[in-house]
């Protein structure tokens, strides 16, 4: 819980520093998904620490050295908020001044993310995919547990009529909002990653209230697992298509006759790929953790 509050605070801090996209992500990831995962795994392990114990001496030594090195490093830094700092000078002006003409997307973060440094984002999608794969292979469940979980509706949730009704109204809105964030990332803050997380959050809320079985009829786990791979393939596929059309890898200019249109199409497609992978991975991870809980219940 405290972790969630910490994340919300960080999000507001990011907004204060003009990083709306980052704030958006931190709010959805930190406050949403990672808190959820923490709670899910706390449910699986002992809730209480036996007693707090530290090995403080070594740790203190290490952090003193690290801290000293960091503070020493700050001494020659340009001041906070200084517009003439080298970080604002060398590479960035081109993004700010030319991206409208070169890419035609007002949200500069999106154009840097998806086009100038699109390859980083492909790597990032692959990282998410790797994590999903790791969780899948670690928390592998037998098909028996899967069957048992089908009919399980959380008992305490059945009584929460108000919660269920409100959620029924909320969930479609959440999913639509996710799609809005997905396709509006060019103009406002947002994009594939945030949209994927929000979409996943909608599905997770649904699962929590109506049970795993119902949710899995709508979002079949096997299909979701394939979707995790599909998103990555889609992103890289766009890159390969660019190569086949005569450009460099991920050079969207060649996708259409007009470079700007090509960029638009390319960004749209790769953001969609990111969104699909992220949503699918988040849902898979959540399913896996829930199955684990179910398994524990049955075996105890």
């Amino acid at each position: 819980m405290l972790g969630g509050i910490y994340s919300l605070l960080s999000a507001s801090f990011f907004i204060d520093l003009d990083a709306v996209d980052v704030a958006f992500t931190e709010a959805s990831v930190g406050a949403g998904i990672s808190t959820l995962l923490m709670l899910a795994s706390l449910k699986l392990v002992n809730r209480y620490e036996r007693k707090t114990r530290y090995k403080p001496l070594l740790a203190l030594g290490v952090i003193t050295i690290t801290g000293a090195l960091l503070i020493y490093g700050t001494l020659d830094m340009p001041h906070f908020g200084d517009p003439n700092a080298p970080a604002q000078q060398h590479v960035v002006p081109r993004y700010l001044n030319e991206s409208m003409a070169e890419i035609g997307v007002p949200n500069v973060v999106t154009s840097v993310l998806a086009s100038y440094r699109g390859y980083d984002t492909l790597g990032e999608t692959l990282v998410i995919f790797t994590a999903g794969l790791g969780v899948m292979s670690l928390l592998l469940v037998s098909s028996r547990t899967k069957k048992e979980s089908k009919n399980l509706v959380p008992a305490d949730m059945r009584q929460q009529i108000i919660l269920r009704v409100v959620a029924k109204m909320m969930i479609p809105l959440i999913l639509i909002f996710a799609l809005y964030v997905q396709f509006h990332g060019d103009y406002g803050p947002g994009g594939g990653f945030q949209a994927g997380v929000i979409f996943a959050a909608g599905v997770i809320l649904y699962t929590m209230l109506f049970g795993l079985g119902v949710s899995q009829r709508a979002f079949h786990p096997e299909v979701i697992i394939l979707l995790t791979a599909f998103g990555v393939l889609m992103y890289a596929g766009v890159g390969v298509a660019c190569m086949l059309l005569g450009g460099n890898f991920l050079d969207y200019n060649v996708l259409r006759h007009d470079p700007i249109h090509g960029q638009h199409l390319g960004i749209l497609l790769v953001e969609l790929g990111v969104g699909i992978t992220v949503a699918a991975v988040m849902i898979t991870i959540f399913y896996k953790f829930t199955w684990r809980t179910v398994k524990h219940k049955y075996h105890q």
């Binding site: 520093l17 003009d18 990083a19 996209d21 980052v22 992500t25 931190e26 990831v29 930190g30 998904i33 990672s34 995962l37 923490m38 899910a40 795994s41 970080a87 604002q88 590479v91 960035v92 993004y95 700010l96 500069v108 973060v109 840097v112 993310l113 440094r117 980083d120 984002t121 790597g123 990032e124 990282v127 998410i128 790797t130 994590a131 999903g132 790791g134 969780v135 670690l138 928390l139 990653f193 992220v278 991870i285 896996k288 953790f289």
Partner: peptide, 26 residues
């Protein structure tokens, strides 16, 4: 405008962070 590059890098880093956390929790 503030620096878009730093924001973009951190978006990537947040994703990497959550991936690590998820794997660690599993």
């Amino acid at each position: 405008y503030s620096n878009p590059l730093a924001h973009c890098l951190i978006l990537t880093a947040i994703v990497v962070g959550i991936s690590t956390t998820a794997l660690g929790l599993a």
